[in-house]
């Protein structure tokens, strides 16, 4: 088994730079980095706090040949970018990570143990402030339903030899919207939330699944009222590569106004959901990046699930596949004829 440093150093022989992680991010956890020389690559690490989806940088690096360390989920984003001809397969070298055993929700650790608490998040164990804790408890919610332990595409393979994730739900039961964001402990005047749930410690997705339309509308209004329009959801998304010409910010067409309120935030997210239909790989970066904790994956996961049901399609799993909304089936779609 090769370590991550030597793999990156080897790949650097073929590319201009490699996207990976160093251990020196804010709060003492891994942060994304670019390596251009073998010496720089000495600083590369891979651990369970390497949560970021580095594929977000690929569209910005189109004029270079790039190596990228990609977890199973991230590799789907790379594949989808290739599928959409946003990047060229020949110009990207994928270092796939296999057998990670899930990555860690750092914010959850910070929330309960304080920001910047020393974290040693290996691929098979987790130590917080020197004490071993139940790794499972701090896994990202999305990892619990992982169906992408093996990278979809790769040129090099890094065996992370992590622990197995217990309680992985099979595809059929990864049903209604999983969301990373747990419930807070305090009560607000959210009628929607109290109507739907008795146990606040349960994942938000379960409560959301039980709400009716009116309750969900209230729920979203409250969630969106926190939005500050920093566009972190969009900027963190590997598939949102329109970036600087996004219709969320244009005045012509005028899909959203310039104000910052729940209504505009709602329209922004409707735009995102719509534009990511059949393209979202469910990496969860939008929700992870949201600084005010809006559970965006409730919508994205739901849509991905519907698309799989309707069209048998999962974005970023087949380089040759045609995205479902760019084609049609004269006979096969007739179920929806009304």
């Amino acid at each position: 088994m090769s370590d991550i440093v030597s793999i990156i150093q080897r790949v650097l022989g073929d590319v201009d730079l490699v996207l990976g992680w160093t251990a020196t991010g804010a709060g003492g956890v891994a942060a994304p980095a670019r390596f251009q020389t073998a010496a720089e690559a000495e600083r590369a690490v891979f651990n369970a706090t390497c949560v970021h989806n580095l594929a977000v940088h690929l569209p910005r690096l189109k004029d270079q040949t790039v190596g990228i360390v990609a977890k199973g989920c991230d590799s789907r984003s790379v594949a989808q970018l290739i599928q959409e001809r946003e990047i060229d397969r020949d110009r990207v070298k994928v270092i796939g990570v296999r057998g990670l055993g899930g990555s860690i929700d750092v914010r959850k650790i910070w929330r309960f143990h304080g920001y910047g608490v020393p974290v040693d998040a290996r691929t098979d164990s987790l130590f917080i402030d020197g004490k071993e804790v139940d790794r499972q408890e701090f896994l990202r919610q999305k990892c619990l339903g992982c169906r992408d332990m093996d990278p979809v595409i790769y040129d090099e393979l890094f065996e992370a030899s992590g622990s197995s994730i217990t309680g992985i739900a099979d595809a059929a039961t990864v049903e209604t919207a999983l969301s990373e964001t747990g419930l807070g402990t305090s009560l607000t005047a959210a009628e929607a939330m109290s109507a739907a749930g008795e146990d606040e410690s349960r994942p938000l997705g379960e409560l959301f699944a039980k709400m009716n339309s009116a309750e969900r509308r209230l729920f979203w209004r409250e969630q969106y009222s926190r939005c500050i329009r920093c566009y972190a959801c969009r900027e963190a998304c590997p598939m949102c590569f329109c970036r600087d010409v996004c219709i969320m910010q244009t005045t012509d067409p005028h899909w959203t106004g310039a104000g910052v309120d729940a209504g505009e935030a709602e329209m922004m997210q409707l735009i995102r959901v719509n534009h990511l239909a059949g393209r979202c790989t469910g990496c969860g970066e939008c929700e992870r990046a949201c600084p005010v904790g809006i559970p965006l994956m409730l919508l994205m996961n739901k849509q991905n699930q519907v698309i799989e049901e309707l069209f048998g399609y999962r974005a970023g799993t087949d380089l040759e596949a045609r995205p479902p909304l760019l084609t049609f089936d004269i006979k096969g779609d007739s179920r929806s004829e009304k």
Binding site: T188, A190, P295
Partner: peptide
């Protein structure tokens, strides 16, 4: 400041 419900522990002035 208050921790907001369904926000993954986000605290904001409310």
């Amino acid at each position: 400041p208050r921790e907001l419900r369904g926000s993954g522990g986000t605290v904001m002035f409310e």
